[in-house]
Design a binder for these strands. Structure first.
Lengths: 191, 191
DNA sequence: TCGGTCACCTGTCGAGCGGTAGGTTTCGTT
DNA sequence: AACGAAACCTACCGCTCGACAGGTGACCGA
């Protein structure tokens, strides 16, 4: 069973890589990308820093893997983004602070010069805005009940999600992320 | 004129410190707080790193001074926050990317563990939300035209401002921050 | 003119960083 | 049983970081 065994071998390695990426997500959440040392990530999966570098040749390569994971994670909801699904997404995120914290920290860093995640986020926001506008158009047509066009509502929707995340991360007890987001959707959807 | 001379001396020193804080704002905008080295800040004002440490004994002390500057800068508009003034503020900020970038980078970092700016931002958002709610109440009463209470609208308002800043910093040509913000205010103020 | 404070310097330190080089163990395949 | 690649390690490197110690010159009030 040559294929099977080859698969097994490759799977072991990919499992290891997945472990490392998971650990990297945690460490980045705690210290940011610049503050995350390869040694700290390695220790979390029981490796030395050099052992980690066997799987990812540079720190930036590891970050790329982290961002790629996010990409395919986002792809799960698919192009079908309806308002109620967005609320569920926000509620779901509110129970997994780690992920939010990782990418909020990365987003903040990414606006600095020459940050390796900058292109990723720029590109990501472009597509997210476009997808969001398309979803709003599919649901409401050329004008939302509030009078906005989908293209003008989309950046606001994205901004609210991100902005609420920061407020919530800093002070979870004072900010009900999901409720606030529902408020905003009401604002968009009401006449 | 002992007082006068003493003042002069103190003023010289404070001017120097102000110069350093200004340089620190720039460097933090470019590299974040963790990425900003004292040497880089010092070089920008024509000092050695050790010369800078004469004015601010630690890196964190310098950050505190930077945050303090922000505090009194925000205090300028006073408690009188009206909707149209907010628009002017956003428009003004859109012409000074440096400031926005500095504090967007700091905000992103601040959600990480043990970050020295975390308490600052937590506290700041608490008061900004409260001030904003008070301003909305003064303008609209207990219910905004959209039906929201001031307390529920305030976090959304703050979130939109922050979120738009990130989108704008990453891709200024694709995001019209002021226009989007006006859209949101319309959303809030319309029935 | 003297004395002292202030501003700033050179020198140095220890720790941590990402990354390279090269060896050793483990393990599936033949 | 032998081989070869993959996984992982030890050792090391150059660099940068924030911070400490101690010295020097200028300025300023007495």
């Amino acid at each position: 069973m040559p294929y099977g065994d080859a698969m097994t071998t490759r799977t072991r390695s990919e499992e290891r890589r997945a472990e490392i990426v998971r650990a990297a997500l945690e460490v980045i959440a705690e210290r940011g990308y610049r503050g995350a040392s390869l040694a700290a990530v390695a220790e979390r999966v029981g490796l030395t820093q050099q052992g980690l570098l066997h799987h990812f040749p540079t720190k930036e390569a590891l970050l790329v893997a982290v961002l790629r994971e996010r990409d395919q994670w986002d792809a799960l909801p698919g192009t079908g983004w309806r308002a109620d699904l967005l609320v569920s997404l926000v509620e779901y995120n509110a129970m997994r602070p780690g992920i939010i914290q990782t990418f909020s920290a990365l987003l903040g860093e990414s606006v600095t010069e020459g940050h390796p995640a900058r292109a990723f986020f720029t590109r990501r926001y472009t597509t997210v805005r476009a997808d969001m506008a398309a979803a709003l158009r599919a649901e409401y047509g050329e004008r939302l009940p509030s009078g906005l066009t989908p293209e003008r509502a989309a950046p606001l929707l994205v901004a609210v999600m991100d902005g609420l995340q920061y407020q919530w991360l800093l002070d979870p007890e004072s900010v009900d992320m999901a409720a606030a987001f529902r408020d905003f959707l009401t604002l968009l959807g009401e006449d």
